[in-house]
Design a protein around this nucleic acid. Structure first.
Length: 482
RNA sequence: GCUCCCGUAGUGUAGUGGCCAAUCAUGAGGGCCUCUCGAGCCUUCGACCCGGGUUCAAAUCCCGGCGGGAGCACCA
């Protein structure tokens, strides 16, 4: 048997049963409680990638079945985030449009004796489940359960009093899989559909019904849904529906990052964060602001793959991929943090010359003219080096010697071989600049006059890659990575 | 407590019985190159959770430990 050469993987392993006519139908199912964060992007990218591999269709289904957790703004923000990520959505579905269908399914299940309406106290009901015992409601005749269901759906009960339950196996060895709630009453208008309904489906019901109705062939999601898959399988079984292929990947942990939508939302309310794109949080809009490209995120998730092992996101890894993308197209500029002025004695005239990109001479150079004594700013740390060593090279300009005052010391580049440090500098006419760092702090400094547009990523030499937010009297930028 | 899932370098990843004294990326150390602490080139460090078993041969199969994670919601 011939073995393939070892190669770096650039695509995902084949999906089981993916050779369906017309391609696979897959879905992402965000809960509209806020914008997408880095963790969410994995399921979006992976599903999108498999759909593209097979020429199939991707659904975006908003799981807005809990009125208490819906942020009406989130529908729009999520759509924007998916678009930014390059995820191609072929159809958008709102579960809040489909409540009647869920009721009908529960009715059908009740008729066949596979669902019931439970009037027990919820704590008691849960207690009986752990003891593998059925409550009195479970054994009721379908006709009686049906009457209860009608009463539930016509607001006969108060919230919390009744719930429609799907039967599984009350003595299932896995306590997580013994009967589950399908419908419950919530007396709160829905942000999107108002007070048309007050009986809301639980996700295991709505997800199973939708995946079936919408022809989903493959369900790819995190393994936190493993038990949900088993629960949903009962609905498929009761109704003799064909199951999709289920794939579960491992959990993602993202170090040093605030991801929880509820925490960020609260932080915004409290004024701790400036918005969903605050650089300190892990939302996609924050990463976008920090100059992270969607292609880097995609490459990252493709590299991680779909294994069931839990993974820890490596920011270094993600940044390395981003650097690959951004480096060839980033113009170089001098930014001087913590600037110190240096007067230089000079009795000639000259012009500095630094390429906009060291590997792309065709982009041209940045240059500044000098005549007679001049002044530049260098950063404090380099200034110390100047005192210590007695000499420094201003990149692209000249060498300077320290003394009572500094002196122009020729333009011999080879001094760097003797250990003279080559540093960036800011000429007169430079602009004040602020670089927003990932921890929320601001690094002030001076940046040489620059020609960059908002949104563009440039490299501040010896400082790092930054995304320009605005240019004008002052430059505002956001730090990306080194 | 019960059920399920997982266990290759710091972080990811390749590997499905012999070509593995284990791949690639990232990271860390060193060197070259470059008028950046970026890029590029070279180099070093670093892993198959443990113990049994099957086999001529195990990272790969089996069993048992141990470790990690998830679920047991009228959240998704």
């Amino acid at each position: 048997m011939v073995k393939e050469r070892k190669e770096r993987r650039t695509s995902l392993p084949d999906l089981e049963g993916s050779d369906v006519p017309g391609g696979v139908v897959m879905r992402i199912a965000p809960g509209p409680s806020g914008p997408l964060h880095l963790g969410h992007s994995r399921v979006a990218v992976l599903n999108d990638e498999y759909v593209k591999m097979s020429g199939g269709r991707l659904l975006n289904r908003f799981e807005d079945t809990n009125p208490e957790k819906v942020d009406p703004e989130a529908y729009r923000m999520i759509a924007e985030d998916l678009d930014w990520l390059g995820v191609e959505v072929h159809q958008t579905v709102y579960q809040s449009d489909r409540f009647q269908r869920y009721y009908d399914v529960v009715r059908a299940l009740t008729e066949m004796g596979q669902a019931y309406v439970c009037l027990c106290d919820s704590d008691e009901w849960r207690g009986m489940k752990v003891a593998c015992q059925a409550c009195g409601c479970r054994g009721l005749a379908p006709e009686e359960s049906l009457e209860r269901l009608d009463r539930l759906l016509s607001s006969h009960y108060s919230a919390g009093e009744a719930a429609a339950v799907v039967k599984t196996a009350i003595d299932h060895p896995n306590p997580a899989l013994r009967d589950f709630i399908a419908l419950r009453q919530v007396d709160r208008p829905h942000p999107r559909v108002g007070d048309r309904y007050n009986v809301y489906p639980m996700m295991n019901l709505s997800v199973a019904v939708d995946d079936h109705d919408l022809g989903v062939t493959h369900v790819l999601r995190g393994k936190d849904h493993l038990n949900n898959t088993h629960r949903q399988a009962y609905i498929y079984g009761h109704l003799s529906w064909t199951k999709p292929v289920f794939i579960h990947y491992g959990l993602v942990s993202i170090p040093d990052t605030v991801l929880k939508t509820s925490v960020i939302g609260q932080g915004i309310k409290d004024g701790e964060y400036r918005g969903w794109d605050d650089v300190r949080v892990g939302t996609l809009r924050a990463l976008a602001r920090r100059g992270i490209r969607p292609e880097a995120i995609r490459r990252y998730w493709l590299d991680v793959g779909v294994k069931q092992v839990d993974v820890q996101v490596s920011w270094d890894g993600l940044f390395a991929m981003n650097r690959d993308i951004v480096d060839p197209e980033s113009k170089r500029y001098f930014f001087v943090p913590d600037p110190v002025p240096v007067e230089v004695e000079f009795d000639g005239s000259t012009e500095s010359s630094c390429p906009l990109h060291p590997d792309r001479p065709e982009l041209g150079v940045r240059s500044h003219g000098f005549e007679g004594d001049f002044m530049v700013h260098i950063c404090a740390e380099d200034h110390e080096e100047l005192q210590r060593k007695g000499m420094l090279r201003l990149k692209g300009l000249c060498n300077i010697e320290s003394g009572e005052t500094c002196r122009h010391a020729g333009d011999d580049k080879s001094v760097s071989r003797q250990g003279v440090r080559i540093v960036q500098w800011a000429p007169e006419g430079s602009l004040p600049a602020e670089v927003l760092m990932p921890d929320g702090s601001v690094t002030p400094g001076l940046v040489e006059p620059m020609d960059a547009s908002p949104g563009e990523v440039v490299q501040f030499e010896r400082f790092g890659f930054v995304r320009i937010e605005s240019v004008g009297d002052r430059v505002r930028a956001v730090f990306a990575h080194r």
